[in-house]
Design a protein around this nucleic acid. Structure first.
Lengths: 304, 304
DNA sequence: GATTATTCGTAAGCAGACCTGAAGGTTCCA
DNA sequence: TGGAACCTTCAGGTCTGCTTACGAATAATC
């Protein structure tokens, strides 16, 4: 009977790449991880790791083992969720991550709703970019994630994740308010925004990738002068007449700002969804959080 | 993350009934099992055991947990089998149990075949009644079982078991040889055997159940004077003119005896099959054993 | 109905597993 | 070429988990 704790180390190694990261994630010393994996290797009698530079690489046998282990860990988590669900209703801790605009617009209300309905449920909230959040969710460092999905943009797919749509929100171009002077006042469509500076999120985010794509389709390569993942800053830069930016309705829920909005071709909408691991999707904590979000967030964000 | 070793104790408890038996099976002291289960209970925060007389009973929560655990253990075993299969071909140990007539008739040849083809494969052979063997197989105390299935007899069903037919053999009534005197010489059908003593296997076996059923259908309740699970003894008792008995072709492979054979109504055949756990069904050791049996045992036992 | 046998639970002691920290070797990068 | 990152090995300490011993409760037996 193989030791699941050791198997887990192997699975974490497959997911994280280096032995040191595994140790860090599990709050152990790298030495310990190395010893345990060595022990596992001795038990199965087949080499699991090969040296690859200064890192280690999984052998084919190890890959097979990891495949099974992922299933086992999911099942183990499901077992734990199922049995605690039977015991006490809606208690324990749920680790939630949301992206910035949701965090600012709706989470305070959702948290208030939750603590009122389920006083014994502890929600740990962190703000995280959707890609990072989904990754951490798969690694079991989070339990529930609110993420976004841009149209025609291949969403990263993780095995064992359960996704549910939460709402959709319109994407528009935000330009400085009327009478800001040129060149702002003459912008009437996305195609006009090739001559002005942009505020965008950093490269690697879905938002950045998507809006750049839209700009290229409109016939220009955007000049990204301000780069920050703080969308509050984007709004501020637009309001003060320094840049144009992509703006979603979710932002406008908080900022009834004076920026001027310009429709994008095709009136595109972004999908906002919640994701959790399938293994714990039916646990009371997750269900409670999801329904709290559903109550607080309008199912169709259509601002005037 | 629940400890799988502790979960296993719970699963074994569900399968075996008492904590002492679990301890015995796992070569531990009952005290240790009790402590570990207590720890598990503390971890999940839900009562798992309730006192039922001097034994313990599983709560609903524990049953749920066991359900998941069985899956996890199967997967764990499959993982181990898969990875050792990748490593070395057909080595290790396979624990096989067969019932008596197969043990005597074919296993010597099968073992010779196996040791020649796979010198590094170690086969541990034990003789066991089919019902007991299948039970022990499900409990992971055996890896491969050769068992029998009587027609129209509800075979005991165990989850996670993989069954493959091996052969079938004719069932006949064996009576003492001609010129043994009365009442033997006048027996020409099963219905005539109501007046003579029988040799049968002990109650609780499928064989016993089946032949008693046949007797009742033929209109009589058999007088079981000799009761033993040693079918060799059955043959001896018939040969010496002391009883009649059920005899399968599998027995006759060894004993070209002088007993007289009488067809039973409907010329019934017994099915002989191999069984293993699904989790290890694809492991090289199991495959090797099964194909050795298939080579050695004729696919259709039809003796003149 | 008293006695005996089983079974589970608790306490204390001990062995072994596991983890930490230091030291060493290799690889990668500046 | 020197430093940083990474993995491994070794020695040592801590802690988990096992065993033995004992007690309580229940079932079986005479």
């Amino acid at each position: 009977m193989l030791d699941v704790r050791r198997l887990r180390l192997l699975a974490e190694l497959a997911a994280r790449g280096t032995l040191a990261e595994v140790a860090e994630a599990l709050h152990q010393s790298p030495s310990s991880v190395s010893q345990q994996l060595g022990q596992l290797e001795r038990e199965v009698g087949v080499p699991l790791l090969r040296k690859a530079g200064r890192r280690v690489q999984l052998t084919a046998a190890a890959e097979v083992l990891v495949e099974h282990t992922v299933e086992i860990l999911a099942r183990l988590e499901a077992a734990e969720a199922a049995v605690t669900a039977l015991g006490d209703d809606t208690a324990g801790t749920v680790r939630v991550a949301v992206f910035q605009s949701v965090a600012l617009a709706y989470m305070p209300q959702a948290l208030a709703d939750l603590t009122q309905r389920h006083p014994r449920l502890r929600v740990m909230l962190s703000q995280r970019a959707p890609e990072q959040a989904l990754h951490d969710l798969a690694l079991r460092e989070l339990d529930l994630v609110v993420a976004e999905h841009y149209p025609d943009h291949g969403a990263p797919h993780f095995d064992g994740l359960d996704r549910q749509p939460l709402t959709t929100d319109r994407l528009r171009l935000a330009v400085p308010p009327r009478s800001s002077g040129e060149p702002w006042d003459s912008i009437t469509s996305l195609a006009d925004a090739g001559r002005v500076p942009w505020a965008m999120e950093p490269p690697g985010t879905a938002s950045r990738h998507w809006i750049e794509e839209q700009c290229r389709r409109a016939g220009f390569e955007p000049e990204v002068r301000y780069e920050t993942d703080d969308v509050e800053a984007h709004v501020a830069l637009v309001e003060t007449g320094n840049a144009v930016a992509l703006l979603s309705d979710l932002m406008r829920v908080r900022h009834r700002t004076a920026v001027r909005l310009i429709e994008l071709p095709g009136a595109p909408r972004r999908t906002v969804f919640t994701a959790t691991r399938t293994a714990i999707a039916d646990s009371p904590g997750i269900l409670a959080c999801r329904s709290a979000l559903a109550r607080v967030v309008p199912s169709d964000l259509e601002l005037p």
